[in-house]
Nucleic acid binder design. Structure first.
Lengths: 158, 158
DNA sequence: TTTGTAAATTTTAAGCTTGAAATTGTTTCG
DNA sequence: CGAAACAATTTCAAGCTTAAAATTTACAAA
């Protein structure tokens, strides 16, 4: 008699998705950690600071604190602290909004703009290096797959 | 005369990689944020706590603090705090290591194990839901593409 | 031994992050 | 006008995170 046949038991989709998520998270976290390390070691700054500077660089007229926090998808209080520290370092400043005494606009100073230009060039080169494993057509492919996730994901605001 | 011909100017690979990185980061961060939200709102816990419990659940005999921090790829001091708080809540405990008075092993308590079983089941279902946009063959595809990134990435320890 | 080096862990200081509470200013409408 | 509702921002408490310093213990070599 044959032994009780061990079914091939293909990996159930939910397990496959879990594994993929763990791999996606590992890849993303790994790249992010490397970026943080380089920003810190080579430029004495942090990713949150870079993100804020990036948003302000694209908006030379400044952004209200609330706009900044919406755009970066972080809390209001969070932005307060980061802009505080950028201001201490002379890279950003707050400007009163004419019509509304509650609001303030954060802007990059000239020094902040210059600093960001340097950081942005490095940043792009780093990404190019860290994602060098993907050929142009693979980039297209992966973009489409990520699109599948976000399009079908519940709760993902925007 | 024709106007100076505007070259088609295809997107340079470095820009394409940058865009893909931003999309990858957004997808990953979005899913992670949703997981944190659900852990918090539905189970009054956090992702770091879940990660530590997950590692301990796979190692019923416990893990030394240093093993835990290596496995989770976070700093030693970080693990100290998380295990402290799990211990306060009766979900984990520290056990002295026989041969070495410097070391301690962190273990889940029975309550911790039971709690983790509940969390893990939910977690897997959430991932299945959030990644529902990918069919089985797309999961395979994406796994391969992620592999391309990690294999060619410099610095990525392991 | 004693001396020194290495290892395991905790502590510390600084920054990031959040949600909730507190402040201050605006607007609406009775 | 005056009160209440609403809006922009900051403050606060708690937790996460890191690198670096401090502790405690182990081990090796002189």
């Amino acid at each position: 008699m044959s032994q009780p046949a061990k079914k091939p038991s293909p990996i159930p989709p939910s397990k496959a998705r879990l594994r993929l998520w763990l791999k996606l998270l590992k890849t993303s976290s790994g790249i992010e950690a490397e970026l943080r390390r380089r920003l810190r070691d080579q430029h004495n700054t942090t990713l949150p600071r870079f993100d804020v500077m990036s948003a302000l660089a694209r908006n030379p007229d400044g952004l209200k604190m609330s706009q900044l926090s919406q755009f970066l998808r972080v809390s209001n209080g969070n932005v307060t602290g980061i802009v505080d520290r950028l201001t201490e370092d002379g890279l950003a400043l707050r400007v009163a909004v004419p019509g509304d005494r509650r609001a303030q606009v954060a802007q990059l100073t000239p020094a902040g703009l210059a600093e960001f230009a340097r950081l942005a060039a490095e940043h792009e080169a780093w990404i190019d290096e860290l994602m060098a494993g993907l050929a142009p057509d693979e980039i297209t492919e992966m973009t489409a797959l990520l699109e599948q996730i976000t399009l079908h994901a519940p709760e993902e605001k925007s």
